[in-house]
């Protein structure tokens, strides 16, 4: 359709979007390979939703261009719409219609016959465990049910590319896990997913690759592991078995630490960079006869990575 590379399911270059004085996107590049999940990570107002809206043909970029499945979003929007599914940050099902009616409407809009649309609606409701609520108005659904219905609605047309704009914002942990499982299932079926989220663990759980944006610009790109290693230091945490020994344990940790030692509650923690630090610490504690209830070395969480990348704003 154009000269651009179709090895990417989604490919955007130099996307710029302004709303009056505000620059929502300031030259964003994205590339997502088919059948993978890209996590678009950033704080509120970073430009995530604007990027999704451009890729879903809902707004036109002021500069730059984007292709989905090889079709230019600005010049071939109808073809792009035939490939995508969109689940918005705010559940965009019709609250006055039942679950069945919502899916039936979309099936009919996509050209399915009445019986085919009914069958598709029933199958999706079944798959998302909404069969019991199929005849109830979506406005009466719980948050998790509504999000599942919204996901089902975006899947009626069997999209090859799915945009999930903060799919779990406001959900309880259980509903969040359900949505995650659904997304994993879709990716296993070969669907390409662009996921926006403010939650680092969500990106960590689902995305093979993460793009961090802030103030409309890409500030980091890589796998979750890449991003974690970029911050470097690991953290050692020690929970004393005997509270009175906290002071001496703190001194022992200080001897292997690469930075200041902290005591948080009854846990002693400190950054370490030497690979042998943990072994050295264990020997030291043993020699002094200090008992510990818990001793761990952990990689930085994505939250820490994110904080260090975006400064104070996260």
């Amino acid at each position: 359709m154009s000269g651009m590379d179709t090895t990417y399911a989604i490919h955007a270059e130099g996307l710029v979007k302004r709303f009056g004085e505000t620059t929502a996107l300031d030259g964003v590049d994205l590339a997502v390979r088919p059948g993978t999940v890209l996590g678009l990570l950033g704080p509120n107002g970073a430009g995530k939703t604007t990027a999704v809206r451009i890729l879903a043909t809902l707004v036109r970029p002021d500069a730059g261009h984007a292709e989905v499945g090889g079709f230019d979003v600005a010049r071939r929007p109808h073809e792009v719409r035939g490939l995508i599914g969109l689940t918005g940050q705010y559940a965009s099902v019709d609250e006055t219609l039942t679950g069945t009616e919502n899916l039936l409407m979309i099936g009919r809009l996509l050209g399915l016959s009445r019986p085919a649309a009914r069958a598709r609606a029933a199958a999706l409701l079944e798959r998302f465990e909404l069969t019991a609520a199929a005849g109830r108005a979506a406005g009466k659904y719980s948050g998790g049910m509504r999000r599942r219905l919204d996901l089902a609605a975006s899947l009626v047309g069997d999209p090859r590319v799915l945009y999930l704009d903060e799919p779990t914002t406001g959900l309880d942990p259980r509903s969040r896990n359900e949505v995650w499982d659904i997304v994993r299932g879709l990716v296993a079926d070969g669907v390409t997913v662009l996921l926006t989220t403010q939650y680092l663990d969500e990106a960590d759980q689902l995305a093979g690759e993460i793009v961090v944006i802030d103030h409309g610009r890409v500030i980091a790109t890589g796998t979750p592991a890449d991003l974690k290693s970029r911050v470097g230091a690991q953290t050692v945490t020690v929970r004393p078995a005997v509270i009175d020994e906290t002071g001496r344990i703190r001194e022992a940790v200080g001897r292997v630490a690469a930075g200041p030692v902290d005591v948080s509650g009854d846990v002693v923690l400190a950054p370490v960079s030497d690979p042998g630090a943990l072994a050295k610490l264990v020997r030291d504690l043993d020699e002094q006869g200090l008992a510990v209830a818990e001793l761990a070395l952990r990689s930085p969480s994505l939250d820490e990575v994110f904080l260090s990348l975006t400064g104070a704003r996260a």
């Binding site: 809206r53 879903a56 043909t57 809902l58 109808h78 073809e79 719409r81 035939g82 995508i84 599914g85 969109l86 918005g88 705010y90 559940a91 965009s92 099902v93 019709d94 609250e95 979309i106 809009l109 996509l110 609605a153 975006s154 047309g157």
Partner: peptide, 15 residues
């Protein structure tokens, strides 16, 4: 429809 986001869903469909 616009404020509830139903329009975004409709506009993202090939209709």
């Amino acid at each position: 429809d616009i404020t509830k986001g139903v329009f975004d869903r409709l506009r993202s469909l090939p209709i």
